[in-house]
Design a protein around this nucleic acid. Sequence first.
DNA 1: ATAAATATTTAGACAAACCTAAAACATTTA
DNA 2: TAAATGTTTTAGGTTTGTCTAAATATTTAT
Lengths: 218, 218
Amino acid sequence: MTLSEEDYIKAIYHLGKGDNTTVSTNSVAEMVETKPSSVTDMVKKLSDKGVVNYRPYKGVNLTEYGQKIALTLVRKHRLWEVFLVEKLGFSWDEVHEVAEQLEHIKSEKLIDQLDKHLGYPQVDPHGDPIPSKTGEFKKTIKKLLIDIPVGTSGICVGVKDSSPPFLKFLDKNKIALGDTILIVDKEEFDGSFNIQINKKNIHISNQIASNLYLKISE
Amino acid sequence: MTLSEEDYIKAIYHLGKGDNTTVSTNSVAEMVETKPSSVTDMVKKLSDKGVVNYRPYKGVNLTEYGQKIALTLVRKHRLWEVFLVEKLGFSWDEVHEVAEQLEHIKSEKLIDQLDKHLGYPQVDPHGDPIPSKTGEFKKTIKKLLIDIPVGTSGICVGVKDSSPPFLKFLDKNKIALGDTILIVDKEEFDGSFNIQINKKNIHISNQIASNLYLKISE
DNA sequence: ATAAATATTTAGACAAACCTAAAACATTTA
DNA sequence: TAAATGTTTTAGGTTTGTCTAAATATTTAT
Ligand SMILES: [Mn+2]
Ligand SMILES: [Mn+2]
Ligand SMILES: [Mn+2]
Ligand SMILES: [Mn+2]
């Protein structure tokens, strides 16, 4: 597959919402930042190659073969993201653009060895799951910390309240996007939480807990 | 620069023998595995961009600007080669193809951090020097071990005699291409050598020493 | 010095991936 | 259910990087 073909396949995969829903020409165009007419051309070519099912005016989705390719690309993209953050000191929000390039490097050995070098990570820095070599992975969902059971851990991926006071609080307590958080304990009395973050235990109120989104494996 | 343009620039650089000699259309074609007519086209384009000096029928070489680009590419290529060998366990002869792709990834931060991650290496797994961020590097030369002064170290890059008995000897003594060898001592009496390889000292005869090529910095 | 051999460029085409403008189809709205 | 609106495809072009075949320049050999 060429670099362009791969980017289209990934777009169709991501728009397919995990269940390979048929997606529109326009939505693909928006995702790959091109014009709908270009998508029509490409999608015909991918259809000829057996990568997608395409019915004119009706939309497009991935074949089995296409899904396999998509999962390999997602695996590569996310492993590179882990590498950039863990080994090269990139931050959460700097990795995407570079991974977007690195995902197209062709070498099976490279990816296998990278996976090993990173200690076979299960999730990327954004909390998204990394498919195994055979394409399996756990789905993840985004939940408010307050709705997550004790003993579970997840990755901080967003805030509900983004007011300066709240952000300042997070900053002061060194809670940042991309951090792994373990729910240690929940206090019956006031609904407050004990959480572990960066190897330290801290205590947060019910209010804080209801404004932090984590991504956890189902 | 596009991937293709970069590969042409590298080819012109490598054919230029370090002193930026003017090179022929045919030689470039051979190196980038294309036809001479394609080289003519590309070289005109690179000339318009100020990357090369081109005189029809006379040949092509790099401008100052072109040399800068070439050195950046060589730097990237060789840093990735070190990464593949040192961090991912690739062997000497497996890295080139992958580095040929990785060298085109665009991110200055990526290369700076990779350099740091690798501990600012001076040479790649083939004994070739890695240009600094500003483009400086020591030239290296290939010499028979026998002609190298005591105290110098280099990287094993080839053999003069490739007969089975000699190769078997190297194998038995765990001397492989890509290994770093330090000349510890030379025996006046029989011209034999003490060398250090893989943190072990071994003794080799004058005959062995006159059939092993090392790459050393000038 | 001339002819033969070789190297290089030009001319004309092609595939990939994109574009704009116009036509065809589908959906919504009145 | 017909018009209006929005979506998708088609038609026709462009750019990049490649190719073959033919023309031209340069080098080598007689
Ligand atoms: Mn990409
Ligand atoms: Mn990610
Ligand atoms: Mn390359
Ligand atoms: Mn090398």
